[in-house]
C-alpha cells in the first residue's frame, strides 16, 4: 500500500520558506560561498541553494510531495491522527495550545499526535515563541494498492 500526498505552496508559504532559509544561512550569497568552498561535502547545501535561488524567481510554482511506501507508517497513522491532520489543514491554528483548546483535548496528547505526523513530514511544527505552530504539509492524500 502506498500513500501519496501533495501540497501546492501559496505565495505566503514560499515567503515563509525563504525566511527559514534566511534564518539558517544568513544570505543566499553566504550559502553560495559555502557551496563553492565545500564542493564535495554535504549535498544538502547544494539542494538548499538551488531551492533558494529558484524560490526567488517571480511567479514560481512550488509543489511538495510525499510518498510513503512502507507499512511502518500505519503504526503512527491512526484514524484520530488523520482527523487531526485534516483539522490542521482546514483551520487557522496558531499554536499547539490553540489547537488543543479548539479540539478540547489534552495538550500532551495533541503534541504526541502531531509529533507522530511530523516524523513522516505530514505536518511541520514551527517555533512561535514558547509554543509551536502546526502546519499541514498535505493538501491531498491518495492511498493505492501496489500493482
Amino acid at each position: 500500500m502506498i500513500i501519496e500526498t501533495e501540497k501546492i505552496h501559496r505565495q505566503k508559504d514560499i515567503q515563509n520558506e525563504l525566511e527559514e532559509l534566511g534564518r539558517g544561512y544568513g544570505s543566499i550569497e553566504a550559502l553560495h560561498q559555502r557551496v563553492s568552498v565545500d564542493k564535495c561535502g554535504s549535498p544538502f547545501f547544494v539542494d538548499d541553494y538551488i531551492l533558494w535561488r529558484a524560490l526567488r524567481t517571480e511567479g514560481c510554482e512550488y509543489i511538495e510531495k510525499i510518498e510513503i511506501d512502507t507499512p511502518e507508517i500505519f503504526a503512527d497513522l491512526s484514524p484520530r491522527r488523520l482527523e487531526l491532520l485534516e483539522y490542521v489543514r482546514m483551520h487557522d491554528v496558531k499554536s499547539i495550545t490553540d489547537l488543543a483548546g479548539q479540539l478540547n483535548r489534552n495538550y500532551k496528547n495533541v503534541y504526541d499526535d502531531l509529533s507522530a505526523l511530523q516524523k513522516w513530514g505530514l505536518v511541520t511544527l514551527s517555533r512561535r515563541g514558547k509554543d509551536k505552530k502546526p502546519v499541514s504539509q498535505v493538501e491531498t492524500m491518495k492511498v493505492t494498492f501496489r500493482r
Binding site: E61, Y62, K65, T70, W120, G121
Partner: peptide
C-alpha cells in the same frame, strides 16, 4: 519555473 520537492519513504 516549477519546483518539485519530493520525499519517498522506503
Amino acid at each position: 519555473m516549477r519546483i518539485t520537492k519530493e520525499r519517498i519513504w522506503v
